[in-house]
Design a protein around this nucleic acid. Structure first.
Length: 431
RNA sequence: UCCCCGGUAGCUCAAUCGGCAGAGCGGGUGGCUGUUAACCACUAGGUUGGGGGUUCGAGUCCCUCCCGGGGAGCCA
């Protein structure tokens, strides 16, 4: 295979003739000068050609080009202050691979209703490209953290026989002659895995058939969920804050060039260092009442409530000890007051809301059976899960972090649908 | 599911009290030796989301349906 050079490496080739393979990002011409802005997935470079006559063969070929046409180009790399990016290529020749049809996305504002059905093309745009590059970096940093901390990746199934939390928001599908459900969380399997491997995590897509229609919700989203045996409530909160500090700081370090494209105010992120403030649910409600929230105590917070609480802090804030009746059946009751649980949410600043939900899990067999029944689940369906409390049960804790919410926060974007390549939202299943 | 806003050229939008359907961008043609979402000139481009109603006359008012956007609830 013949070798070619990627645009992000061009500065190493100043003075040399290189081959570039890419797509036309923009075209400009001014009499006897022609510019092709070429993009190749690693960056954009301006290329230029001159001709004393306007009907040279190269100019004729240039005039055939349209936006997003695919092109292989040869030319000499030079430093050029006038060019965006600092280097430019003097075109020696180029081959057209394919002339693009008239490209629907223009270099101007478009409505989201226009762009969403063109998502497969929209991801070529600078901002969308930058967001998805940061997603890649963030995912690697998440894996890196758990690798360093001695957690084992143990994958959990996507097709599952029963629910993890509630049944109203499950996607049901046929599984030969049975019913199966798309996973909402790998947590129950994580608990089994933690009893085998000690410290584990799973990381994959999860599905919630919620009819939610807000900037913080996706139908299909990615969640990373650690779970550790012998880790109690406080231990897991420490993991959570160290984890968040690590993935934020490492991602902004490695993803600087993309955050610049997005014009993200980095000072707000550089401040995200553990430890994070903690506030009990009941105390959070005192704040909410002072601020005039209408949410009745004992209920879960609304999105605006989360924003009120998080605006009191310049770091993410833990809200802890939620009432048992609004939380999942498996959460360990607070020994000081069993109406409450050893649970925690982490609220991100700047209105990005809940990015983590976690808890210590019930490890006592009798108590877990009692809670299962109270929540109306069948003991039969959870037989395997109950086994974990029969064969060497230990205290254990875990949490889940929503990837797209975290990425929205890091990138500073307004709507979560841009934090995943192909968002599944209430009304969007295409493309 | 509920509340609010919207649907006019390929795109983003305008159209005063109900009175000739318009602009910018994009497309096409021509011009320009350093453009930065280039610029200049010319040019083509319309079932005003569908159906019904009121009126001499409806993009505009009324009814209804469809589609989109924003928010709420629920959650990560």
């Amino acid at each position: 295979m013949r070798e070619w050079v990627y645009i992000n490496n061009l500065k190493d080739y100043v003075g040399k003739t290189v081959e570039i393979r890419g797509w036309v990002y923009n075209l400009r011409s001014s009499g006897k000068v022609r510019f092709i802005l070429l993009r190749d997935g690693t960056g954009i470079v301006q290329t230029v050609m001159f001709s004393p006559t306007k009907d040279s063969p190269q100019f004729k070929k240039f005039d055939e080009l349209s936006l997003e046409s695919s092109v292989i180009l040869w030319g000499k790399v030079k430093e050029e202050k006038r060019a965006p990016g600092g280097v430019e290529i003097d075109i020696e020749d180029f081959d057209i691979v394919q002339i693009s049809d008239e490209y629907p996305i223009q270099k101007k504002e478009h409505s989201i209703g226009f762009l969403m059905p063109l998502r497969h093309l929209w991801i070529r745009s600078r901002k969308q490209f930058a967001i998805l590059k940061l997603r890649d970096i963030l995912i690697w940093k998440i894996r890196e953290f758990f690798k360093k901390e001695g957690f084992t990746l143990v994958d959990t199934p996507i097709l599952t026989p029963s629910s993890c939390e509630g049944t109203t928001t499950l996607f049901e599908t046929e599984y030969f002659d049975q019913k199966a459900y798309l996973s909402q969380s790998g947590q129950l399997y994580n608990e089994a895995n933690a009893m085998a491997f000690g410290k584990v995590y799973c990381f994959g897509p999860t599905f919630r058939a919620e009819k939610s229609k807000t900037r913080r919700h996706l139908i299909e989203f990615w969640m990373v969920e650690p779970e550790a045996a012998y880790y109690e409530f406080e231990d897991m909160m420490k993991v959570a804050e160290n984890f968040v500090e690590y993935i934020i700081q490492e991602t902004i370090k490695e993803g600087k060039e993309y955050l610049e494209i997005l014009e993200r105010d980095l000072s707000k992120l550089e401040n995200i260092k553990a430890p994070f403030p903690r506030i009990k649910y009941t105390d959070a409600f005192k704040i909410l009442k002072e601020e005039g929230s209408q949410t009745p105590e004992g209920e879960d917070f609304g999105g605006t409530d989360e924003t009120i609480i998080s605006s009191k802090f310049d770091k993410p804030v833990f809200v802890t000890h939620f009432p048992a009746k609004i939380k999942a059946f498996y959460m360990q009751p607070d020994p000081e007051n069993p109406e409450y649980t050893l649970s925690f949410d982490l609220l991100a600043p700047e209105g990005y809301g809940e990015v983590i939900g976690g808890s210590e899990r019930i490890h006592d067999y009798e108590l877990l059976v009692k809670k299962l029944k109270e929540h109306g689940y069948s003991e039969e369906d959870y037989k395997w899960y109950l086994d974990l409390r029969k064969y060497g049960s230990v205290p254990h804790s875990g949490f889940g972090l929503g990837l797209e919410r975290t990425l929205s926060w890091i990138t500073g974007i307004h709507h979560i649908r841009e934090a995943i390549p192909y968002p599944r939202t209430l009304y969007n299943l295409y493309p």
